[in-house]
Amino acid sequence: MSVSTCPSEPAEAAEGGLDAIDRAIVLATQSGLPLVPDPWGAVARPLGLTGEVVRARMQRMQESGVIRRIAAVPNHYRLGYVANGMTVWDVDDAHIQRLGREVATIPGVSHCYRRPRHLPEWPYNLFVMLHGKSQAEVERQAEALRERLGEACRDHRILYSSRILKKTGLRLARQPGPPR
């Protein structure tokens, strides 16, 4: 499980939006929640807290914007999905909001974003990440996506990943001393 923090939107607490206990919880979870039946308890025990306290504090931090999301993030490479294509689409602006929402629901789409065009070099305004076990599979997905976009789509490209980058969010530096 992944925990994404966003300290640029501070909560109503001490320095940086986190009190010492919240900071200890973020430090304990920033590499992910443990994959055990009681992840809240597993995080809580070394901190001298209860699982309920950790869950409630993380929920509060999420509601205040300190934590953006708590989600499962599978390693698609280990699952055999080694062809990763960022597809970029030139979609008619009059239809992009509706079509973007539709595209985001398609199985196999892990990311779907509207981005500004940079004309004349870059006419693409819809970015959609597709994953497959081969480039041919990604190309089939892109063709199905092209059909779904219909007349609103003028052009597209597939940009394949050439290497795996480290995928981590923001990390807090550890500070000496116990949480209190």
Results as ranks from 00 to 15, higher is better:
35 L>C: 01
176 P>W: 09
28 A>M: 13
167 K>P: 00
85 G>V: 09
173 A>L: 14
62 Q>Y: 08
71 A>F: 02
177 G>V: 05
150 G>S: 03
153 C>V: 01
149 L>P: 02
9 E>S: 12
82 V>A: 12
114 R>E: 14
88 V>W: 11
41 G>N: 14
70 I>S: 08
179 P>K: 01
99 L>Q: 06
118 H>M: 12
106 I>F: 05
70 I>E: 09
90 D>K: 02
137 E>M: 04
34 P>L: 06
112 C>E: 06
24 A>K: 13
169 G>T: 00
144 A>M: 07
118 H>A: 15
175 Q>S: 09
157 R>N: 10
38 D>W: 07
36 V>E: 10
84 N>R: 15
37 P>L: 05
110 S>V: 14
140 R>Q: 10
68 R>W: 14
32 G>P: 00
91 V>G: 00
177 G>K: 02
135 Q>Y: 03
59 Q>M: 10
79 L>W: 07
101 R>L: 14
34 P>D: 05
117 R>M: 10
59 Q>V: 12
116 P>C: 08
51 G>E: 11
154 R>P: 04
83 A>P: 05
31 S>M: 11
37 P>S: 06
16 G>L: 07
46 P>R: 06
32 G>D: 02
142 A>Q: 12
93 D>N: 04
47 L>C: 07
131 H>G: 02
57 R>L: 12
71 A>I: 00
180 R>V: 08
1 M>K: 00
120 P>S: 10
137 E>G: 09
40 W>V: 06
35 L>T: 03
86 M>G: 13
25 I>Y: 05
89 W>A: 03
157 R>M: 14
113 Y>D: 13
59 Q>E: 12
10 P>N: 02
34 P>W: 09
56 A>R: 15
70 I>A: 11
7 P>Q: 02
128 V>Q: 11
98 R>Q: 15
64 S>H: 06
46 P>H: 11
126 L>F: 02
42 A>L: 09
2 S>T: 14
117 R>D: 04
61 M>T: 09
157 R>K: 14
54 V>K: 12
170 L>T: 14
178 P>Y: 03
85 G>P: 14
177 G>C: 04
11 A>S: 13
88 V>D: 06
